[in-house]
């Protein structure tokens, strides 16, 4: 047992309201690496957990601007520099005909930024998670509300006591 590591502590809560309250207490007690698990989104949970705004917007912006610049550069360079050809009596380069591709590529790379940025920030895909080994945790897709505190949290030493005081039931140690 000496080499067995602990991922964190799992506690069950009776309903969304008690979980929300527990999340507020965890936030106020200074816990950083904790997470709540519910079958459906709970209004106000972001605030209760003290979550900051997602960074994914900046990734989307970066993707969009890359698409914008890349599309303009590609169209201008191919049509006006590398291989100039008159097509339909139009100028070698004009913002009018360049706009549809520029628009589409901006949208495409923005969407990539949104989807893959979200994956990266959530560290997905993750085929295995320590919680998968806790059979009771499967109820999270149905009618159970959990709060976990990870072992990496600086205040993990007091976590069990905290969860008991916060009204957590069936407090379980989750092996890594």
């Amino acid at each position: 047992m000496a080499d067995r590591r602990t991922w964190g502590l799992l506690a069950e809560f009776e309903n969304p309201a008690t979980l929300l309250h527990a999340a507020e207490r965890a936030r106020d007690a200074g816990y950083k690496n904790f997470e709540t698990w519910t079958p459906f989104p709970i209004h106000g949970m972001d605030r209760a957990m003290g979550l900051k705004g997602s960074k994914v917007g900046w990734i989307v912006l970066g993707g969009g601007l890359t698409g914008l610049a890349g599309a303009l550069l590609l169209q201008w360079w191919t049509s006006a520099v590398a291989y100039p050809m008159v097509i339909g009596g139009k100028p070698y380069f004009a913002w009018e005909w360049a706009t549809p591709v520029t628009f589409e590529l901006s949208i495409l790379l923005s969407a990539f930024g949104a989807v893959f940025g979200m994956f990266a920030l959530n560290r997905l895909p993750r085929p295995y998670h320590p919680l998968d080994r806790i059979p009771r945790f499967r109820k999270v897709t149905d009618d159970a509300f959990f709060l976990t505190i990870e072992a990496t949290d600086p205040k993990f030493a007091q976590a069990r006591e905290f969860l008991e005081q916060a009204g957590g039931r069936n407090i379980t140690e989750v092996p890594a």
Partner: peptide, 12 residues
């Protein structure tokens, strides 16, 4: 607005 302008610009 662009859709209207673009088609007319292209059709010329």
């Amino acid at each position: 607005a662009f859709s209207q302008y673009y088609l007319i610009w292209y059709g010329n």
